[in-house]
Design a protein around this nucleic acid. Structure first.
Lengths: 107, 107
DNA sequence: AGACTACATAACCGTATGGTTATATTGTTT
DNA sequence: AAACAATATAACCATACGGTTATGTAGTCT
């Protein structure tokens, strides 16, 4: 995964409310009206959080009558964790920069 | 790890520049003056990024003469990855909320 | 059709963020 | 001591963020 995309995903997870929502969705799917009383913030606030989680691929929505059920995209969450545990090796880029003299080796 | 603390760490990683710095530090320690030309942003900008990474425990600094070498705290990075892969199970909290009737079970 | 419910979107607001330039601060060198 | 180099801090700025209230939209139920 590219840095920009991974950073975007990490930023989506880097909010306590969204992080807890993701944890909740591990247990079971939830609709917005369930999440509102849990977090004590307004319905639009929850909607925006869900929208952001959806944009970064962490959550899928399923319309069911009036309700919109959000479910966790476990593969995506797993992928982010793996990317974080396995960040790209930039030693080659470092070597090239050093060769071009663009990199001062301090010490 | 608590949600707030983990979210804080994820937010620290949720910036492309900082994420790439962390990846670079996997290869070798760097001082600020090396990072500046790599990213094409100002020295204070790099300093602030390093400060933030240090605050969230992802990076350690070692003063060596004029330079400050930053090194990756691999344990910390690992810990964050593990926390993300192993988010708390909130099923008990969900159950309690349902018992109190504070949670509408939709459908 | 009309009222109601769940959700999304819009407009707004205070604060955080990521950058800048200017100015300490600290160590090195002559 | 004076000049210089590397880093940090301060002050500032535009944009992003996380919340709010108000309003639109779509499905449900008499």
């Amino acid at each position: 995964m590219e840095f920009d995309q991974l950073a975007e995903a990490l930023k989506a997870l880097g909010d306590p409310t969204r992080l807890k929502i993701v944890a909740l969705l591990q247990t079971r799917d939830c609709c917005v009206c369930e999440l509102v009383p849990m977090f004590g913030i307004s319905q639009p606030a929850i909607s925006k959080h869900m929208s952001r989680l959806k944009t970064s691929g962490l959550v899928k929505e399923t319309r069911k009558g009036m309700w919109v059920f959000y479910s966790l995209n476990r593969e995506r969450l797993n992928e982010i964790g793996l990317s974080l545990a396995n960040l790209p090796d930039l030693s080659e880029e470092l070597r090239q920069l050093e060769q071009k003299g663009m990199l001062v080796q301090c010490e």
